[in-house]
Write a protein that binds this DNA or RNA. Structure first.
Lengths: 347, 347
DNA sequence: GTGAAAGCGCTAACAA
DNA sequence: TTGTTAGCGCTTTCAC
């Protein structure tokens, strides 16, 4: 088995080394590794054998250079909710599992603030494409520069410009209407709201959904019962404290995501209020925290995992130059748990 | 401003295009972009100007090929706890923020099961280096193959082989002893344990810590009061159910992470038990969920974020060929919250 | 079926 | 201070 006078200089073996050992040209090695036809079986075996003996692995950087494909895809998000982010990543990674693509995570502090630099950064990262989570998914400047830079993208839950790039959508507004209606149908009329980060388009969409439900029920929204959070537990806690301090206290709180709803839950406890006895609290997203919270949160399921899988799928389809269908719609679903109940009779 | 007869074929401009426009050689453009000295200011300006007009950005794949650096670093983890993973990523990304490196996430279902394939995968991803979270950080085969493949690594919380590769460590065992002592000092003697995934070395280390504390206090561990989970909420819930079903019921439960402790918390509620009135529950990690849980969990802080920052720092140091110091030790800290109290007098 | 030669876009020697 | 010449390791013509 003596490797007769090999010339493999030092580091990683190259195709040339494999070719030399197998007694074929570099091109033939390339053919074998790319599963191209027109290679005799005997030679194919010889090459594979030589490669194995040398522990040869193709140099992906060289491939990337000449093929103009890095096989890197980015996931851009600004979301501060851990469970949301984890679901997002799980979904994308699940779709990428049997593909050659790798996932580069690109969390940004503020899309609003960094939009112009973002695409430059993405471009210099040599990404083949990106999955854009909200609010980046909605940003016209980003979409425009991305297409100008030739970087494919797929968007998760955009609220507009549906034709600008492949999208996976959900009707935030109807979902919000559904959960508001749930509270209304329980008999609540004194409902407070904890909005999310105003730079997320979902904030307005969900707010519009609440508003529609209230209008249809003839219930007016009290402006001082609307608080703004940032989709984080802590912001929900603080908003909850402010809301529950009000003199006629709201009988229910609608939070725009589960993390903030959990914060409101804690605020209620601080005030010695029982949930849902004294105050009902509803979230949004059906993230893991909504199951874990006590009492488990009534929420509206946004299938983040599935949407992320679909977005990754649409992105790959583009990269492989397959046809990409129109926006893929995902269904939300009202999940009634133990954090909501009819308002108790006031004293 | 007419671009007189440019030859820029079609796609992205290259250094040659910039050079042509600026009237200099490609090498000069390279010098400018690499901030090399010995370039006159006037030429530097001309080049920058031409680059701006062409919207030139260096092709990182070409750079990667010739420099043998992809500037990609991987984060390998198996941990199923969302808050742990998020902290891990946040830490690494925080250190990478002002560097040219990008983060590729590599979650693996089971290190134990995929160890041999893992390094091949990492190698074919052209990563410059990887940060290994437990349990990959402890795997001799992985460490060996990694060094053989010339991929640098930094390890988070390994429990052995401290000299095999740069490590950021914490004394899991002492931390576990501390929290066990906390329960013992409250007067608990009937203590049950929810272990984590047995393939994670932290499971044994923490168990050893508990054991030491119990032995010192002359308390014996009942084998049937030890349940195994997988570091997930659901596994903690089920383990909690099994434990609380026992006839003389434990007065306290030690869970090996916060997610499982939160599951146990829910199990206690299902049994109509009050925490900490009827049963005390303690977690491990001080992840976000421990603050959010109700009651907030007594736990022991493992500074995951800081450890991840340090690991990334050590990895970068290696990649930049700077000296890397020995294992960096991090301090744990007992965090007493509302989920533990003295056992109530039994009937 | 197989191979030689010419790049991909950049950096690294070495001249000038 | 600037430019020329070779590659990096691979794929892609296009011959044979």
């Amino acid at each position: 088995m003596g490797c007769a006078g090999m010339t493999m200089t030092n580091g990683r073996p190259t195709m040339a080394d494999v070719g030399r050992l197998a007694g074929v040209s570099i091109k033939t090695v390339s053919r074998v590794f790319n599963d191209e036809p027109h290679v005799s079986d005997s030679i194919r075996c010889r090459v594979m054998d030589a490669a194995r003996r040398l522990d040869y692995h193709p140099n992906v950087m060289a491939q990337a250079l000449v093929r103009r494909r890095s096989h890197l895809i980015g996931l851009v998000y600004e979301n501060p909710s851990p469970s949301y982010v984890v679901e997002l990543q799980r979904g994308v990674l699940d779709r990428l599992k049997d593909e050659r693509y790798r996932l580069v995570v690109i969390p940004i502090r503020s899309v609003e603030h960094n939009a112009s630099e973002l695409v430059g950064m993405l471009r210099s990262a040599a990404l083949d494409g990106v999955v854009l989570a909200p609010p980046a998914a909605d940003h016209p400047l980003i979409l425009d520069q991305l297409s100008r830079a030739g970087i494919s993208c797929a968007r998760i839950a955009p609220t507009r410009l549906f034709d600008a790039a492949p999208s996976v959508i959900i009707d935030d507004q109807v979902a919000a209407t559904d959960i508001a209606n749930h509270l209304l149908s329980l008999g609540h009329r004194e409902i407070a709201i904890i909005k999310g980060d105003p730079t997320h388009p979902a904030s307005d969409a969900r707010m519009a959904g609440y508003t529609r439900a209230f209008a249809a029920a003839g219930v007016t929204i009290r402006p001082d019962w609307i608080e703004a959070g940032q989709f984080t537990f802590d912001s929900g806690l603080e908003a909850g404290r402010r809301l529950l301090r009000h003199a006629p206290r709201p009988t229910a709180i609608l939070a725009q995501n589960d993390d903030m709803a959990t914060g409101a839950l804690m605020a209620a406890r601080e005030f010695g209020l029982r949930v849902p006895g004294d105050v009902s609290i509803a979230g949004f997203d059906d993230s893991e925290i909504s199951r874990i919270a006590w009492p488990p949160l009534t929420t509206v399921r946004q299938p983040v995992f599935d949407m992320a899988v679909d977005a990754a799928d649409m992105l790959i389809a583009q990269l492989e130059r397959r046809a990409v269908d129109g926006p893929r719609d995902h269904r939300h679903q009202l999940i009634v748990r133990a954090s909501t109940a009819p308002p108790s009779a006031l004293p």
